[in-house]
């Protein structure tokens, strides 16, 4: 199993301890509050993914075929979910990022936040992360 999936499984296990949505949301909100996810210099128009509801900034760095992601959002729940996505995808191999099946979001009961109708920038962010993976992988071939 690749690392992406083992981290996803870890998160699923962690979330299994939560009794109800309140506890889950409190955890996500804590994640969103605690992490400085992106350097100020990258919080600009160039790195911005505009959603109707919330905004997301995403920056990618490449080293030796791996991609490091940093990201942020103006909404704290969105930011908490970003923290999970970054935990799963950052530092992984470009080709694995491009092909990742992010099943954990559904399994931990947060799929509504990754629905296109929410328009919170997260769907575009995941697409963008995979695009980086694809592009960096193509370049290294």
């Amino acid at each position: 199993m690749n690392q992406i999936n083992s981290i996803q499984d870890e998160i699923i296990d962690e979330f299994a301890f939560f009794g109800d949505w309140m506890e889950k949301y409190e955890y996500i909100i804590d994640l969103g509050k605690s992490l400085p996810l992106i350097e100020e210099q990258y919080k600009n128009e160039e790195h911005l993914i505009k959603g109707c509801q919330s905004q997301v900034w995403l920056h990618a760095d490449e080293s030796e075929g791996k991609v490091d992601f940093t990201a942020d959002s103006d909404a704290v729940i969105t930011k908490g979910i970003i923290a999970l996505l970054v935990r799963v995808l950052s530092g992984q191999k470009a080709d694995e990022i491009a092909q990742a099946d992010l099943y954990f979001i559904d399994k931990i009961g947060l799929k509504e936040h990754l629905s296109p109708t929410r328009s919170n920038g997260l769907v575009s962010m995941v697409k963008q992360m995979k695009m980086y993976g694809l592009a960096i992988n193509a370049k290294s071939q």
Partner: peptide
Amino acid sequence: VHPYDLGAILDK
């Protein structure tokens, strides 16, 4: 408080 966060909790 961001409106999105508030809306997401109200939804629940």
